[in-house]
Amino acid sequence: MEPEVVNAELVLPTHLSFKRIQMYEKYPKGQSRGRHWKHLKQILQAENYQNYPPDEPNYVNIETPPSMHPCKKICDITGNEAPYFDPRTNLRYANAEVFKLVRSLPNEYVQRYLALRNAAVVLK
């Protein structure tokens, strides 16, 4: 290791005295372990919240409901108020100038703009 790296103590030591079980003991090298953790979705599923009274707060039911107000639309490109919608690209736009830009955008960029508001076409 380079001296400045050592000096900065950048790298976490593999053996730490205050640990009862070291990392290399817990996860021995060279053994494929597969995935040993669950995604949040799986964790929540395993919690079985449906077995508990519905008025008891839990991770799922404290989520905020959708807004009661109508959502004002903004131009995907400029962020101004967008009265118009382009059915070909599905982008919202503010005026003719932006429309010109919208129509000249390559498909990849259109999809990236749509992805910003989670409206892109996702192939599965």
């Binding site: 905020t64 807004s67 508001r117």
Partner: peptide, 27 residues
């Protein structure tokens, strides 16, 4: 320009990035 206040605005309008929940004030 607009980005300066467009980005933090999503705290109040999560809809703009496709999160269908209400924003700070309504919360």
């Amino acid at each position: 320009g607009v980005e300066r206040f467009r980005c933090p605005e999503i705290l109040f309008r999560p809809n703009w990035i496709g999160v269908d929940q209400s924003g700070l004030d309504e919360m």
